[in-house]
Deep mutational scan, measured.
Amino acid sequence: KEFRPGDKVVLPPYGVGVVAGIAQRSVSGVSRAYYQVDFPGSRSKAYVPVEAPHSVGLRKAL
């Protein structure tokens, strides 16, 4: 896996977040693995496909 729990990442347009782990989510009846990204200071979460994280701009924070 490219990202691990605890990694600081950037996800446009949300900003800097932390990978909380990998979650299985069902979309249109198909279960897939997603990185769960939490954003400190907020209750917001984002789910990014493990198979294509760069397709939505997910990258490691510098």
Results as ranks from 00 to 15, higher is better:
E2K: 09
L62I: 14
S28Q: 14
H54F: 07
V56N: 12
P5H: 05
V30C: 10
K45E: 06
L62P: 14
P5K: 12
S42A: 09
S28M: 11
V37H: 01
P12M: 07
P53M: 06
A61P: 05
V9A: 00
Y47M: 07
V27D: 10
V16C: 15
P49T: 04
A20M: 12
V30H: 11
V50F: 05
S55C: 15
A23L: 15
Y34H: 05
Y47I: 03
R25Y: 09
Y35S: 00
V16E: 11
R4S: 11
G17A: 02
Q36N: 03
A46M: 11
S44H: 14
R43L: 13
P53G: 09
K8A: 11
Y34W: 05
G29C: 04
V48A: 06
A33P: 10
A23T: 14
Y14K: 03
G6A: 06
V9M: 03
S42N: 10
R4V: 10
K1W: 14
F39T: 00
A61V: 13
V19D: 01
G17W: 00
G29E: 03
E51W: 11
P49G: 03
V56A: 14
R25I: 15
S55T: 12
I22W: 01
Y14P: 01
F3E: 00
G15N: 01
R25P: 02
P5D: 04
Y14N: 02
V56I: 07
H54E: 15
K1F: 15
R32P: 03
P53V: 13
D38L: 12
Y35G: 02
G15P: 01
S44P: 09
S44Y: 13
K1Q: 14
S28W: 04
F3I: 05
E51C: 07
L58A: 04
V19G: 00
R32Q: 10
A61Y: 14
K1Y: 15
V19H: 00
R59W: 02
V18K: 05
V30Y: 04
G15C: 15
D7C: 11
S55M: 11
Y34S: 00
V56T: 10
R25W: 09
P13C: 15
V10P: 01
P13R: 08
P5W: 04
R32A: 15
Q24L: 13
G6P: 02
D38G: 04
V37E: 02
A61L: 15
S26R: 13
R4T: 08
V27N: 07
P49V: 03
P49Y: 04
P40G: 08
V48P: 00
V30L: 10
D7H: 02
S31C: 14
G15I: 02
G29R: 04
A46P: 00
K60G: 15
V27C: 12
V27R: 06
V18Y: 11
Q36T: 08
G41S: 11
A52Y: 08
G29I: 01
P49S: 07
G57M: 04
A61W: 13
F39N: 00
P5L: 10
G29D: 04
G41V: 08
R59Y: 06
P5E: 10
K8W: 15
V19Y: 03
K1E: 15
L11T: 01
K60V: 08
I22A: 01
V37L: 06
Y47F: 12
L62K: 10
V56Y: 07
G29Q: 02
P53Q: 06
V9K: 00
F39S: 00
E51Q: 07
Q36S: 04
P12V: 05
F3L: 05
A52K: 08
G21Y: 03
G29W: 00
P12C: 14
P49E: 05
V16I: 12
D38P: 00
S55R: 09
Y34F: 11
Y34Q: 02
Y47D: 02
L58K: 03
D38Y: 14
A52C: 15
F39A: 00
E2S: 12
G15W: 05
V18F: 10
Y34G: 02
V19Q: 01
P49L: 08
V37A: 00
G41H: 13
V48G: 00
A61G: 05
V30G: 06
P13N: 08
G57W: 02
R43K: 12
S55E: 13
G17L: 02
A33N: 11
G17K: 00
K1A: 14
P53R: 05
S44N: 12
Y35H: 02
P49N: 04
E2F: 09
R32G: 14
G41L: 11
V37N: 01
A61S: 08
D38I: 13
P13I: 06
I22R: 02
V48K: 00
H54Q: 10
Y35R: 00
Y34R: 01
L58D: 03
V48L: 04
E51F: 06
S26Q: 11
E2V: 11
Y34I: 02
S31F: 08
V9C: 04
V50A: 04
S42W: 10
G21T: 07
K1D: 15
V50T: 05
P12R: 05
D38W: 14
Y47Q: 03
F3Y: 06
E2P: 09
D7A: 04
R43H: 13
K1N: 14
R32F: 06
I22L: 05
A20F: 06
V56W: 05
S28H: 13
Y47L: 07
D7L: 03
K1R: 13
R4Q: 12
Y35P: 03
V56R: 10
H54C: 13
A61T: 06
R25N: 10
Y35L: 06
G17I: 02
V27W: 06
V18A: 02
V10H: 08
A23Y: 12
V30R: 09
G41F: 10
G6C: 05
Y35M: 03
R59D: 07
V48T: 01
K8L: 15
Q36M: 13
S42Y: 09
A52M: 07
R32E: 10
S31N: 12
S44T: 15
R32K: 13
E51N: 09
R4M: 15
R43M: 15
K45L: 08
G17M: 01
V48Y: 03
A33R: 11
A61M: 11
E2I: 12
S28A: 13
V56E: 08
L11D: 01
S28P: 02
V9R: 00
F39W: 02
V50L: 07
R32D: 06
L11W: 06
G29P: 00
Q36G: 01
A20V: 14
G57N: 05
V9Q: 00
V18S: 05
Q24I: 15
S55Y: 08
P40V: 09
V30S: 07
G17V: 02
E51I: 07
K60C: 14
P53L: 05
V37T: 00
L58I: 09
G17E: 00
R25V: 13
K45Y: 10
K45T: 15
K8T: 09
V16Q: 11
L62S: 14
A33L: 14
S31K: 12
I22F: 04
V27H: 08
P13A: 06
P40D: 08
A23H: 12
V48N: 00
S42D: 09
K8F: 13
V16F: 13
A61H: 12
P13Y: 08
G6S: 01
S31E: 11
P53D: 06
S42P: 07
F39Q: 00
R4F: 12
I22V: 08
R59G: 07
A61C: 15
K60A: 10
E51T: 07
V37P: 02
S44E: 13
S42R: 12
V30D: 07
Y14T: 01
L58F: 03
G15E: 01
D7Q: 06
L58Q: 03
S28I: 04
V48C: 05
G15L: 03
S44R: 14
P53N: 05
Y34C: 07
V56D: 06
A46G: 04
S55K: 12
V30F: 06
K45C: 15
L58H: 03
G21H: 06
A61F: 14
Y47T: 02
S44C: 15
Y35A: 01
K45R: 13
F3Q: 01
I22N: 01
F39E: 02
A52T: 08
H54P: 05
E2H: 11
Q36L: 11
D7Y: 03
V10E: 08
S44Q: 14
E2G: 10
G29V: 01
Q24S: 10
S44L: 15
K1P: 14
G57E: 05
V18D: 01
A20Q: 09
Q36A: 08
K1S: 14
S42M: 11
V37F: 01
P5R: 10
V50Q: 03
A23Q: 12
L11F: 07
V16A: 10
L62W: 05
P13D: 05
K8P: 07
V50H: 02
A33Q: 13
V16G: 05
R25H: 09
V10D: 04
G15A: 02
A46Y: 08
Y34K: 01
Q36D: 06
G21W: 01
G21K: 11
